[in-house]
Computed example of a mutant assay.
Amino acid sequence: MIITPVDEIRGELEALPSKSYTHRAYFLALLAEEESTIENPLFCDDTLATVSAIRAFGAEVNGKTVSPPEEPSPGFVYARESGTTARFSTALAGGINGRTLIDGARRLRERPMDGLVKALKDLGAGISSSHLPLAVKGPVKSGKVSVDASKSSQFVSGLLLLGAKVGLKVEAMNPVSRPYIEMTLRTMEAFGVEFEREGFSFEVYPGVRRAKYRVPGDYSTASFFLGAGALYGKVRINNLLRDDVQADIAFLDALEEFGAKVRRGSDYVEVERGELKAITLDCSDFPDSFPILAVIAAYAEGKSVIRAKQLRFKESDRVRAMAVNLSRMGIKVRELGDGLEIEGGRPKGARIETFKDHRIAMAMSIAALGAEGPSVIEDTESVSKSYPGFFDDLRRLLG
């Protein structure tokens, strides 16, 4: 795809439904006592992997309606490229009597599973490997477990979902991306799951009630267009709730720190271009925003440092991917172990490599809008992982 630069962007869009909440709602509907309805779900490659997973466990899914089995059954789960699907399925397989095989696409086979695998083994599950493909033989017994969550908060969320089925005490050690754990707990509350907590130690009681659950709008995918507003004009995104606990709501604070003008309504966010200055930021709690934050740093005056602990274990090595692409655009970038040092300037048009990573493709598309000269984005199909209509919405925003 060829992207030519624009002078200004002004417009508004409706936020996409949240991918993270959609995953959680469908897995909880699998465990519920009766039929549930998921309103406003996001359907993309990742969430369709989750729908396939809960079907493999015995649920009947008819679009937004989920009819749970009397008891989930073992089976085969192919998680595609979805880390959430793989990790939640692995955890829940620990509560099922029998042997479940879980696999995924090539990059997913490289992503860490070790903290979750160790926790499940400590609970008595039989597991064949520390990475995909792996087989899980349950059931585990109700009990207490500690999990090293320094590589992924999904290890904790998976065990919390398992606790909703079997009852479990979970202690999360060194958790990253903590707001995603809060999202899991909020969704559990909507499905009537009872739990107690002290910090990041939880006691989850078994039992999931049916729910009519509406998926909120997604701050993560909205961040790309809000970033465009910060760089090129003014953008408003509707259907973003001010009181949400989503990780990427912190992206708005980062925009303000850069110097953009941010207005928060009860159900919308509006971002307007300001005089952007370099910042130093650790986005370990909202790492999905790293690519678009790196793009904003590329336009900000001065030298920014953007870090996060787990960037190299995503759909791509995002530190390397952004370093390669921003360097191609003529931006001075220094690669750090856990992030980038970026000296802002005026990017030049370039041939962009997405590394088959949806967030790299979307972030670099926004970067190209203000570059000197046209850019070519290779492999735009990767956006279907989370936002199949991204380029349609980008065209709509550009008029």
Rank of each mutant, 00 (worst) to 15 (best):
A105P: 03
E12C: 13
R111Q: 10
D103F: 02
E372G: 10
R236K: 15
S365L: 04
A300F: 06
L168A: 11
G207K: 14
D288K: 03
D244H: 05
D282N: 15
F57P: 02
K165V: 04
G58W: 05
A59N: 00
R242A: 15
P69T: 08
K118P: 03
F251E: 01
T4M: 11
P175W: 05
T90Q: 05
G399V: 06
T354H: 04
P287N: 13
G95R: 03
L162D: 02
V147G: 01
G124T: 11
F224D: 05
E335K: 08
M329V: 11
T85I: 07
S128K: 13
S129W: 09
E39I: 05
E33C: 07
A125K: 02
Y21D: 05
E343A: 10
G115T: 04
P112A: 09
V245N: 02
V215N: 04
V269R: 00
R24H: 09
M329Q: 06
G138N: 13
P206T: 11
S220L: 01
Y21R: 10
T380V: 15
V333G: 02
L293C: 10
P206Q: 13
S365P: 04
L101E: 12
E39V: 06
F88G: 00
A105Q: 13
G199F: 09
R334Y: 09
N62D: 14
I377S: 00
A93M: 11
P74L: 07
A32F: 05
R264G: 10
D114N: 12
I2R: 15
E34A: 15
P388L: 03
E256N: 12
V333M: 08
P68S: 12
T354V: 09
K151S: 07
L134A: 10
P291R: 06
A222L: 10
S223A: 15
D338K: 07
H358Q: 11
A300V: 07
I249Q: 06
Y299W: 14
S327I: 04
G115I: 01
D45R: 01
V193K: 14
E301L: 09
G373P: 09
P374F: 12
R263N: 13
A368K: 00
G330I: 06
G158R: 02
G344C: 08
V319M: 03
L369H: 14
T50M: 00
F43Y: 12
G115K: 01
E171P: 06
R312P: 08
D392L: 11
A53C: 11
P374A: 15
F258Q: 03
A297L: 06
R396Q: 13
D244M: 07
Y299V: 06
L340G: 00
Y387Q: 02
F27V: 02
V66Y: 00
V262N: 12
G124I: 04
D282C: 12
R99G: 09
T187W: 06
R242P: 07
D253F: 06
F191Q: 03
S36I: 03
R178Q: 15
T84Y: 00
D103C: 04
I249T: 07
E353Y: 12
R197A: 13
T90L: 04
R273A: 14
S152E: 03
L326I: 07
F191G: 01
L240K: 14
R307C: 12
F76P: 04
P374I: 09
